[in-house]
Simulated assay, not measured.
Amino acid sequence: MLTVENLTKRFGANTAVDRASFTVERPMMIGIIGRSGAGKSTFLRMMNRLTDATEGKLVFEGRDVLQLKGSEKRLWQSDCAMIFQQFNLVPRMDVVSNVLHGTLARRGTLATMFNLYPREDIHRAIDILERLGIAAHAAKRAEALSGGQQQRVAIARALMQDPKVVLADEPIASLDPMNAQLVMDDLRRIHDEDGRMVIANLHTLDTARRYCDRVIGMRAGRIVFDGTPAQLTTGVARDIYGAGADFSENATSTEIRDPVATAVIRAAEVAV
């Protein structure tokens, strides 16, 4: 389904991603971990074609997406949705309009300028917000929502594209533990229920173990680990992060083990 072959990105004398190679045979939820500067974000940006690769191949369903140009490149970016750490919403625009921006790649220039959307798209946007538990906020400005709610609006916008692949670049890095769990729950459901491939850059090991089917570790641009969550031991993590014997993953844990509390938070958001 996805083959990454010697994917490399250089910025002058610096190599951000160094001959990364791996294969994914079926839709999975994949976590990419590593220190800041390890090349995780650069890899996702190359996959989404926000950044051009220096060399290598990235073949999805038989097409090398690195070779796509013009309308074919834009179509790929619609099939490969991107979720960012800082949400990238229009703060003063209402929530449902932000979600509808997920259709921009397939809309005409005139319709985009005058913010004209088919009724079926509006209904679909509200249905997606309902699925994510935030339909009650559809008419509010995006800036009025909490960080966790804004990130779920960004997820809804990605789903409006009806993508085959969802890329999430540190989607919970700026969130508190409870909202981080809500966002990761939603990303996992998108994979489980829709059969979409989800690739997320993550900064906590417990999150990668809990939510992902496969974990890829990057260090200095290279893939140094590729395995199951069970294989991601503390010793392996030390190697990925280049840490010493005093390394403790507990300091960065975001795990919440109270499903009742999670349900209460969702119910409270709907009631607001």
Results as ranks from 00 to 15, higher is better:
D192Q: 15
D258V: 06
L132N: 10
D192S: 11
G148Y: 00
D162V: 04
E61M: 03
A173K: 06
F87P: 01
L58P: 01
R219K: 14
N6K: 08
Q231V: 03
T3H: 09
S174C: 12
S36P: 05
R189I: 04
R106D: 15
D194H: 07
V153T: 04
E25G: 11
E5G: 01
A53N: 06
E170T: 08
E193G: 10
S36M: 08
Q161R: 14
S253M: 15
V90W: 00
V95W: 04
R106V: 15
V224Y: 00
K40L: 06
S248H: 14
R189K: 15
A208S: 03
G12Y: 01
P171K: 02
M184T: 09
M46Y: 00
L132S: 09
L104N: 12
E143V: 13
A268N: 15
R131V: 07
L182M: 12
E72Q: 08
P118G: 05
F247A: 01
Q181G: 11
G227D: 11
L202Q: 07
A237C: 10
A20G: 05
L89H: 02
L110C: 06
V59Q: 01
V224N: 03
T15L: 10
I83R: 06
A168G: 04
A251P: 00
T234W: 01
V215D: 02
L104D: 06
G34Y: 11
D176P: 13
N88T: 09
E120H: 15
L202H: 12
P27H: 08
P91W: 05
L167P: 00
I83T: 09
